Amino acid sequence: MVTAQISSSSEHDGINETQVVLNVYDLTPVNSYTYWFGFGIFHSGIEVHGKEYGFGAHDFPVSGVFEVEPRSCPGFIYRASILLGRINMPPSEFRTFIECSASEYHGDTYNLISKNCNHFTDDIAWRLTGKHIPGWVNRLARLGALCGCLLPESLQATTVKQLPEYHDCTEDGSESLSTATPRESTEMDDNDQEKLLVTSSAGTGEVAFVREATK
């Protein structure tokens, strides 16, 4: 388990201070009705240093952690932002932290009930701030764990057959995209495309997977 080493504010005089924000999205318009009863199907991402990080599924044993512009994750309907706290951490230190965390969240381990996007944000929030995300964000998974029949089979086993694209940080701090090489290349048919949780680019948002730290 990777735990963030958070520097004191006096050490950096607040220069590297940043908010840790949970951005919550609706996966379905039905949430507009069920939300008021404390129930819904949500996606969430953690916003730190002006970027948002989430966890999605693909078929390969490599990082499923991806980066997008805050509050613009394609394919989902933005609902709300929740301030979880503030930390003092240089962007480079946070990048190392998120890359190390990505090694624990491979795309082929995604599971809607036991290891979904909300489990990821809850874990990252706890490591950074010592706080958990609100319980209602991932309530469906907890209920589904008690009663597997609650969720349609298509939702319980959703994955994508897609080569992840990654951000590579160069020496000058700029980023470029590279593509991981899977064990075996596969092509997507029409049914597979309907199962996409995240794509390399969709709508107005750009999505790129975070390359995990090498061990």
Rank of each mutant, 00 (worst) to 15 (best):
Q19H: 10
F120T: 01
E47F: 03
V20H: 12
T96L: 01
G45W: 00
I41E: 00
C73P: 00
F76C: 05
I124F: 07
T18A: 02
I77P: 00
C117S: 15
P90M: 00
I133Q: 05
G56V: 00
S92E: 01
N23M: 05
F94W: 11
F76T: 13
F97R: 11
F66D: 01
S32W: 14
S81A: 11
H132K: 11
M89P: 10
E47Q: 14
F120W: 01
P61S: 10
W36Y: 13
F76Q: 07
T34W: 06
S72P: 00
A145S: 12
T18D: 09
V48K: 13
E17N: 07
Y105K: 12
V65G: 08
Y110M: 09
F94C: 05
I77K: 10
S114M: 12
T28C: 13
G130E: 04
W36Q: 13
R142F: 01
I113G: 06
A80H: 14
L22I: 13
E93V: 09
L140W: 15
E93C: 03
V48P: 03
S114K: 12
E99S: 15
P29T: 14
I98L: 03
S72A: 15
P70R: 07
N31D: 04
E67F: 05
A145Q: 08
E47C: 07
N31I: 11
R95G: 11
S72W: 01
K115L: 13
F66R: 09
K115M: 11
L27F: 08
T129W: 07
I41F: 14
F37R: 00
P29D: 08
N23I: 07
I15F: 05
V62I: 13
Y33M: 08
T28I: 15
H43F: 00
R127L: 02
P90F: 02
T18H: 04
G135C: 03
R86E: 15
I113Y: 05
F37E: 03
N116G: 10
I46K: 09
E69W: 08
V65W: 02
G75D: 11
F97E: 02
N118I: 07
S114Y: 14
A80Q: 12
W136M: 09
I46T: 07
D108T: 03
L112I: 14
H106S: 12
R139M: 02
G56Y: 01
H43D: 02
G64M: 09
T34Q: 04
F120G: 08
G64E: 02
S114F: 15
E93T: 10
F120R: 07
I98N: 05
C117Y: 10
Y33S: 09
F39L: 14
S32V: 12
V48Y: 02
P29I: 13
Q19E: 14
L83S: 15
L27Q: 12
L128V: 01
E99K: 15
E93G: 03
N88G: 03
N111S: 14
A125Q: 06
E69D: 15
T121C: 14
V65F: 03
A125D: 03
R79H: 12
N88P: 11
G75C: 02
P134S: 08
W136C: 05
D59I: 01
V65C: 08
D26C: 05
T109E: 15
A145K: 14
D59W: 00
